[in-house]
Design a protein around this nucleic acid. Structure first.
Length: 217
DNA sequence: ACATTAAGTGATT
DNA sequence: AATCACTTAATGT
């Protein structure tokens, strides 16, 4: 779908006025093309060479990657004002995409050619800030997901550990310190204390000094 | 009573 | 989740 220059400028002004300086907006308008995608359309696919990168005007784009068993792993979503930060590395190294971008909802975006990235990086401060900010946001997002996963895992590990102790020791009242558990599970005592407290509030165990009572299910 | 050890808390990374 | 820096509670001598 071809649109003229003034239309692109208009759109960029509408959605990126606070992000990009005027000269850069003109530059993007000159080099970019307007594109729309229906739900489930693929904007960028794995293994394909990337020629253009989208700036999202509105809609929702799912960024995913395939895991070892050809199952899709969701990484994150792109919304209005976002771009696919993760693909900049691919572009700079002229490699193929490691990710898939699918329209989760109908999408309007401006596709700009990858060969402009470096040039804009040198010439426009607002572009540099935009790229680095995108990276930062994505990194934070992923870190917090990893954190949650790890936490979920440890609570389970601790509970399994306790259940196993009950079985081995043939008693529901375990004489054990938080520190000892921490040593066995290779974490710190403080963390164990906190998670045990959670388990207690969930009613799964009862805490006393040097003693943990494991409730029956 | 005083020191030692176990557990709890809040803030930060 | 991990670490730091304290605080509080329980115990041993």
């Amino acid at each position: 779908m071809k649109k003229n220059l003034t239309f692109l400028k208009e759109q960029l002004h509408l959605h990126f006025k606070d992000v990009f300086e005027k000269k850069l907006i003109n530059e993007i308008a000159k080099n970019g093309t307007y594109a729309t995608y229906e739900k489930n359309d693929i904007l960028i696919d794995i293994g394909l060479e990337m020629t253009h990168i989208p700036l999202i005007i509105n809609g929702l784009v799912k960024i995913s990657r395939e895991d070892t068993h050809e199952k899709e792993i969701l990484l994150y979503f792109l919304e209005e004002g976002d771009t696919c930060a993760i693909s900049f590395v691919n572009c700079i190294h002229l490699s193929k995409s490691m990710f898939r971008a699918t329209a989760e909802e109908p999408v309007e975006c401006i596709m700009f050619p990858v060969n402009k990235i470096e040039e804009w990086m040198i010439n426009y401060k607002t572009w540099r800030v935009f790229i680095i900010d995108s990276y930062h946001t994505r990194l934070e997002e992923m870190l917090s997901v990893i954190k949650d996963l790890a936490f979920f895992k440890l609570e389970n590990r601790i509970y399994k550990y306790l259940s196993n102790q009950v079985k081995i020791k043939h008693t529901d009242d375990l004489i054990i310190t938080h520190q000892e558990i921490a040593n066995d599970l290779n974490t710190s005592r403080v963390v164990i204390s906190r998670i045990l407290k959670n388990l207690e509030q969930e009613g799964k165990i009862k805490l006393n000094r040097r003693n943990i009572h494991v409730s029956k299910y």
